[in-house]
Design a protein around this nucleic acid. Structure first.
Length: 478
RNA sequence: UCCUCAGUAGCUCAGCUGGUUAGAGCACAUGACUGUUAAUCAUGGGGUCCCUGGUUCGAGCCCAGGCUGAGGAGCCA
């Protein structure tokens, strides 16, 4: 017999049908009303039990967290909190849950506490909502690209390339480290792959290779950075989406990034309404404890709708610097870091542009060549002879950079010059250079941090709360 | 890695200028009630005050070092 999920029961409302619900107890109210969750929705099913029929000993075992199977007839609820309920006929406790040991209670827990119980935090309303939304967003990404004729490319997790310079890498080896500690000698040629290998920091270079044959591709997989960064926006293991499109220039790239973000948010608004409403209420309650300045300027759903229904602001780096230089904020010397053409903009500068000046997502293009990666396409020098590249960053309120991308340098000799400037030996990325030698073409792409997207959509403020098992310095317990 | 803040009951927190037996709410146990919505009411049990060392007649409180967590910065997605 197939068991309907609670989500299905609320949807179909099969009054008078006899059904079995399997799930986990949230509370037992009044020795009569059992609230059961099965993860299919944030809502719980009310199971009406009674002491006479099921026995006092059984009711005592209906502790928060216990797993149960309840069979009974679906009825319109007499109570006010739900439209249907199940009048329980037979009740089976599948797994007991000792309340003296079980750490999750029907009360508010801090997110920090739940992070230490990562194996059990799925059972809370907040994390249930977050991870249901995470699923829907992953699905939305695939649907967006698939519907536009992109191919999903599986870039390698283990890479022999160390050219991208996106950050510190995790070494991958099966050499005997104890032996190496004794001899003090590492011989890469004796390693599994016969050379030094690392966990990938980006699938971009590989995606470019594929785009120059398949046309439109995207990667969506885990990436790894061994940076010792301890912030609410960084992980050592995170998921990234990297589309790469042949014949796209920087403007096509901006259009794609904006459309992708809007599509994902719209998809969540349509498919995760109840979870988003719950998270909005949660955020509003949390905000009440905060100083007025730290609160969100508008509720979650309003913020998301605002993004979907407005065009992103598009400005050049040079214009952005001018805005900063002409701001009262700058004149009153409120920026901690200096502002001048050529700087790598600090968080405070980006936040000012996005949250104060424009109050909506901003796409900044044309960054100084000196502060961007080697593979970005050189623009013609500006009137003042300054070198910029066809890079673009999409910044959103509250998160900062959610997308970073560029038109790629497709000119063979220009790219070789860049390699020389960046001290990248050509024999390390000969395969990348060859794509420019054999039928090169204009192409562009970007990287979008999946967890940052989820943060933006859910309103969660710590990245460790939007990935099931966060990997951060000194933390890999689960 | 740097700066700032925090660590007290299972959880969330209070604890005065260093002073005698360390508190509250929730959770848990027992009982009452029985159409509740994190049910309610009464009663009860529950503490390595993060660790190590120091100052002091006396340390949850002061000092030093360490550990852990959070916020911010850098780096980035």
């Amino acid at each position: 017999m197939a068991h309907p999920t609670i989500a299905q029961l609320f949807k179909t409302q099969p009054i008078d049908a006899v059904v079995t619900v399997q799930g986990w107890v949230r509370t037992l109210r009044n020795d009569q009303f059992l609230s059961v969750s099965d993860g299919s929705t944030i809502r719980t099913m009310q199971i009406v039990v009674n002491k006479e029929q099921h026995g006092e000993a059984t009711l005592k075992r209906l502790q928060t967290g216990a797993s149960v199977a309840a069979t009974g007839k679906v009825q319109k609820s007499l109570g006010k909190g739900q439209d249907i309920e199940i009048i329980c006929d037979s009740l089976e406790i599948l797994g007991d849950c000792d309340p003296n040991e079980y750490p999750i209670q029907m009360k508010r827990h801090s997110l920090e506490f739940l992070r230490e119980k990562a194996h059990l935090r799925f059972r809370t309303n907040t994390f249930g909502a977050v991870f249901r939304i995470r699923h829907h967003l992953a699905f939305a990404i695939h649907k967006f690209f698939n519907d536009q004729g992109f191919y999903y490319l599986h870039s390698p997790i283990i890479t022999g390339s160390d050219a991208e310079g996106a950050g510190e890498m995790f070494r991958v080896t099966n050499l005997d480290l104890d032996e190496i500690a004794k001899t003090g000698k590492v011989e890469p040629s004796e390693d599994f792959f016969g050379k030094t290998t690392n966990l990938t920091v980006s699938g971009q270079l590989e995606a470019e290779l594929a785009a120059l044959a398949l046309g439109k591709v995207y990667t969506f997989g885990p990436t790894f950075r061994a940076e010792n960064s301890n912030t609410s926006r960084h992980l050592a293991e995170f998921w990234m989406i990297e589309p790469e499109v042949a014949f796209n220039n920087i403007y096509d790239n901006m259009d794609l990034g904006e459309a992708c973000l809007k599509y994902c948010i719209q998809y969540a608004l349509e498919h995760c309404k109840e979870d988003l409403e719950f998270l909005q209420e949660r955020e509003t309650n949390e905000d009440k404890q905060k100083p007025v300045d730290d609160r969100q300027s508008m509720p979650l759903l309003e913020r998301l709708n605002m993004i979907v229904s407005n065009d992103f602001e598009r400005i050049t780096y040079t214009e952005a610097i001018d805005i900063l230089l002409n701001s009262n904020h700058f004149k009153k010397k409120k920026f901690k870091y200096p502002v001048e053409w050529g700087i790598d903009m600090q968080s405070e500068h980006e936040r000012y542009l996005v949250e104060k000046h424009f109050q909506k997502p901003v796409i900044i293009t044309g960054y100084p060549a000196a502060i961007k990666a080697f593979y970005m396409r050189m623009n013609e020098p500006d009137e003042q002879g300054r070198n910029t590249v066809a890079a673009m960053d999409i910044l959103v309120p509250g998160i900062g950079e959610i997308i970073g991308g560029s038109q790629r340098e497709e000119r063979y000799e220009k790219l070789r010059e860049k390699c020389a400037q960046f001290n990248i030996p050509e024999d390390h990325i000969w395969w990348y250079l060859e794509t420019r030698k054999f039928g090169t073409c204009v192409h562009a792409g970007f990287g979008m941090g999946f967890e940052r997207l989820i943060m933006f959509v859910t309103g969660m403020s710590n990245i460790r709360d939007v990935i099931p098992f966060p990997r951060t310095p000194l933390n890999a317990e689960f």
